[in-house]
């Protein structure tokens, strides 16, 4: 279980969040959704240890940690593949930096390549394949971290609608097949609704959880489900209300 309590971060005497508290249960898909500029990215920076928190506690599996820098894998909206390495070499980076046995890691990576529909593309350079395939490769790399917790920073927002669809189901695989615990930030309501178990609505600065919505279990979800549409309507109203309130 990931638990964050009383997290406070101030920039130029402006609190980005103060006393921010959040719990993510193991093997759940938690999605933080909020308007852009609400402090989601700063929150991730604090989690990953890029910038320290002013106050607050982060704990993973019951033990307190300074940050999740060496406990979590990370996936960004940019695929962050290095253009000078082949797709396979890119996916092996976490194994290389972690000093793992490269032979074993290579085999595992090749298996993941075929599981995620990338077989035959191991030797290609990133610029030789499509954006969707690059993001698949980033997903393999995320899995190669061998870390239970995965932080997703709007991982699909740079993709076109069709590619996104297929990658959404791959993200669900992270949870169902690879037993990862996922924490995603996004401003895409539809994506949040399709993927999340627990949806956290965020307010603008100072950022706090306005509401936690637990969604029903059966995934993949479809938007022709009236229940989902009803939830979407509530969320949209809440988010819009929040923005109106500010302006």
């Amino acid at each position: 279980m990931l638990s964050v309590s009383g997290l406070t971060k101030t920039f130029d005497q402006q609190p980005v969040f103060s006393g921010f508290t959040l719990t993510v249960t193991r093997n759940r898909f938690a999605v933080l959704i909020g308007p852009s500029g609400c402090g989601k990215s700063t929150f991730f920076d604090v989690l990953t240890g890029v910038t320290p928190a002013d106050e607050g506690l982060i704990s993973w599996q019951g033990s307190d940690v300074d940050h999740l820098g060496d406990l979590a894998a990370y996936m960004h909206q940019k695929d962050l593949l290095l253009p000078w390495f082949s797709l396979l070499e890119n996916s092996l980076l976490p194994a290389r930096t972690g000093g793992e046995d490269l032979k074993q890691a290579r085999q595992r990576a090749i298996q993941l390549f075929s599981r995620l529909g990338l077989d035959g593309y191991e030797k290609h350079l990133p610029h030789q394949v499509s954006g969707g395939m690059r993001q698949r490769c980033a997903l393999v790399r995320t899995l190669m971290f061998n870390r239970d917790l995965v932080l997703l920073d709007e991982p699909l927002s740079a993709l076109d609608a069709i590619t996104r669809k297929s990658l959404q189901s791959l993200l669900l695989l992270l949870q169902s097949e690879f037993n990862r615990t996922l924490l995603m930030i996004t401003h895409d309501v539809d994506e949040a609704l399709l993927l999340a178990d627990d949806l956290y609505l965020l307010s603008v600065k100072p950022m706090r959880v306005v509401e936690k919505i637990e969604l029903y279990d059966d995934k993949p979800r479809r938007f022709d489900n009236p229940e989902l549409l009803a939830i979407k309507k509530t969320i949209m109203q809440k988010l819009e209300g929040d923005i109106d309130h500010v302006s």
Binding site: T48, G69, A72, H76, L82, T97, F145
Partner: peptide
Amino acid sequence: CDREFRVLFRLMGAGFWQTMRLLYWP
């Protein structure tokens, strides 16, 4: 070098000289 790449290497636990070799130099 883009910030997101540095964050990625940080999370991969790469030290400065390893990051230099794999990321910064190329």
